[in-house]
Design a protein around this nucleic acid. Structure first.
Lengths: 332, 332
DNA sequence: CGAATTGACGAAAGCGCTTTAGGTAAGATA
DNA sequence: TATCTTACCTAAAGCGCTTTCGTCAATTCG
């Protein structure tokens, strides 16, 4: 039998209200307070979050929704969010959505039943209606590394357009003109692609829409798409992948076709994950200030949860190009 | 204001007990049942997990503790556990412990306050006392990919000995007789090394203890050790690394010494991570059957949570050798 | 046709906590 | 001494749900 507030009250010879007040730092006589604290110690009493949440207090739990926890970049983000959340005594319930709008809805609905205090939607979240409902119902939400400009929601993001622009400019400066892109069905990919297009246009190059492919984020599919891109009558000399995992898939596919990276084909990633350093060759990629972003995200959400927040914010962080060995001059 | 069971009851013209019974599939007259269901629909009523848990039901939440969510291998595990848990309507609260016994304790304590239904301790968990307490308090626990033979706890693991044996046998069958090993200071490495020794003895080969090195798991140290091993007066023709990261470090080190993999030196990994496919050359390694392990883990834990479980089990899963390009016949 | 059985339903207690309203004893005021 | 304040503390209601128990009407049987 778990020890309850009643056990403490009885053993300390006070009423449960007094015990409750001690726990919540409300006015209590010094003597009673000491006694109660001592008994709590002795009984190793831990109040039930369930019960206290039922009476209107927080659960100190936040729901973290992300596309796929198995994606190293996403996992890294989750870890950082987790650390910051723990600092405030919050825990994380994590759900992978696979970018599937129904899963997204189910997860949010489930977590709402479990009374999480707020949500962080990280990396990508497609079901806009669900977000809107959350906002309507006054449940704190924050978009991390994902944006829905239509919605009045706190969000914190890297500037994906700049990121795409940086990568594309880098390749262009190496002499590439036929550059393929492989992205995911997510806003961030779209924005990165837009940046790429801008860089192209600025350099007076034409964008070939048939060199832009959208993967469903499985490794197999990405490889398939890569091969298709490389079989294009006028084979591209570089591929911009919208994240590191896609980039690695592309490397594998290219290698299977007998191509040397970066001699025959330059490939760039995005996110600067662990993978990008340890793969062969190490990836040229884009670093997001993940650490700061995640911390800020948690801070902002918790502020909103605790009702201290002012107006909604939309924060943009600037990315940074990291040049490694997967890009080289355009062959011939 | 969230809609509660009272709202439903009132609108349906029945008592809250009837509504509750409908939700819990207890005997209720057909007419009332239809009516209640309809009203629940209309009001989009979702019962509060908090409230129902307070009256003795499950929270349908399990605590997943792991060393570091940012580690891709661990994250992959987490994802699989998550998927299986979701199938049963359970969610996951995830905590990284960094193998720090105090963090381990804090996390468990916090999650207990939040009334999770059970715990999965994955990959590694050092604070044995905490596990013992959990067992004493009859809270379901399961060790995944980690074992504490002293404790009567459900656990599920790969058979590391067999894994080591498979790898060593493979190399022996390729004609190698001087095989070095590089592992970490962990039970799993020890067991893998034992398997290697068994394979050697069975083949009538002698184990040279001076060809076994233990790395502190930093990439640099692993490379240093590799070089030392390769500078041994009688240079080994193969290296067994106890995980993929170590294997890749070894590859890099060997390459720096001008050796060709696998012509001059065969190298094997362990875990069959993404890395092992994407590195050059792709690693011969050992697949753990993660998918099945994780699913089984969840199944077992939930059985225990629902009280359907019989005795505690200790399950060993057999690993599978994956032969890629990093191993070849013994030179000369 | 009366008695016994059965099924449907609701009143109410209880889960562990917070919070409000109110009571009591001690000290302050005059 | 009589009246007012404070300072502490508690009883009790309430959060949203489950569950036990009792009531009542419909059904069955002798």
């Amino acid at each position: 039998m778990k020890t309850t507030i009643y056990d403490v009250a009885e053993k300390a010879g006070v009423s449960i209200s007094t015990v409750s007040k001690v726990m919540n730092d409300q006015q209590v006589g010094k003597k009673s307070k000491q006694k109660v604290l001592k008994v709590m110690q002795e009984l190793n009493y831990k109040p039930s979050v369930l019960a206290s949440a039922l009476t209107g207090k927080r659960t100190s739990t936040i729901g973290l929704l992300l596309p796929d926890l198995a994606n190293p970049f996403v996992a890294e983000m989750a870890r950082r969010v987790e650390d910051r959340a723990h600092e405030f005594g919050f825990s994380l319930v994590i759900c992978s959505t696979d970018l599937n709008p129904e899963k997204e809805e189910r997860s949010v609905s489930l977590l709402r039943q479990k009374s999480v205090d707020g949500f962080i939607l990280a990396s990508a979240f497609n079901n806009r209606q669900v977000i809107a409902d959350l906002v309507d119902d006054n449940i704190p939400v924050l978009l991390l590394s994902e944006s829905h400009p239509q919605l009045a929601v706190n969000s914190i993001n890297i500037d994906n357009i700049v990121g795409g622009y940086q990568v594309a400019s880098h390749l262009v400066s190496l002499g590439h003109t036929r550059i393929a892109v492989i992205g995911e069905d997510a806003t961030s990919s779209q924005q990165r692609i837009n940046g790429y297009k801008q860089a192209f246009q600025e350099s007076g190059l034409t964008v070939h829409e048939d060199l832009i492919a959208i993967s469903d984020s499985s490794v197999e599919h990405a490889q398939l798409l890569t091969k298709e891109l490389l079989n294009h009558p006028k084979r591209p000399t570089a591929i911009i992948a919208c994240n590191d995992v896609l980039a690695i898939s592309a490397i594998l596919a290219a290698r299977e076709m007998g191509l040397d990276i970066p001699k025959d084909l330059s490939i760039t990633g995005f996110d600067n994950t662990l993978l990008s350093k340890s793969c062969d060759p190490p990836l040229t990629t884009v670093e997001q200030g993940l650490d700061k972003m995640c911390a800020q995200a948690v801070d902002l959400l918790i502020e909103e949860i605790e009702g201290k927040s002012t107006a909604k914010q939309r924060i943009l962080v600037l990315p940074q190009l990291i040049i490694r060995k997967s890009t080289d001059f355009c062959p011939n």
